[in-house]
């Protein structure tokens, strides 16, 4: 397993990042090669990632911005 050198704070992860890390953790735990304390902290982080992912899914709202020239601005839903 690629031990993330400095794990990003969970609340800053995007969905894809959080889910990908969760997947890696589950794969690792299923390999059953880890020392217990490491497994426990992996499990804890996994739980945090599950929480993060479901929050992101529940609160998801399409974010639409409009390019004008080189500027990005929130798109006001037209008509």
């Amino acid at each position: 397993m690629a031990k993330s050198s400095s794990p990003k704070p969970i609340e800053k992860l995007k969905y894809e990042q959080a889910f990908a890390e969760l997947e890696t953790i589950v794969d690792t735990l299923e390999g059953q090669q880890n020392p217990l304390d490491e497994a426990m902290s992996l499990y804890e982080r996994g739980q945090g990632l599950v929480k993060r992912c479901s929050e992101l899914l529940e609160g998801a709202e399409l974010k639409v911005r409009e390019l004008s020239g080189d500027e990005l601005s929130e798109l006001v839903a037209g008509e």
Binding site: Y15, F19, L22, E23, I25, V26, L29, E30, Q32, N34, L36, A39, Y43, G46, Q47, V50, C53, S54, L57, A60
Partner: peptide, 27 residues
């Protein structure tokens, strides 16, 4: 779709819990 993602997440959560339990049993 987001519906797929929700069901993936449920599956992943189950795997997280069962793999941890299995690991505990093995340990």
């Amino acid at each position: 779709s987001i519906i797929d993602l929700k069901s993936y997440l449920v599956g992943m959560k189950d795997r997280l819990i069962s793999s941890s339990l299995n690991l505990l049993t093995v340990k």
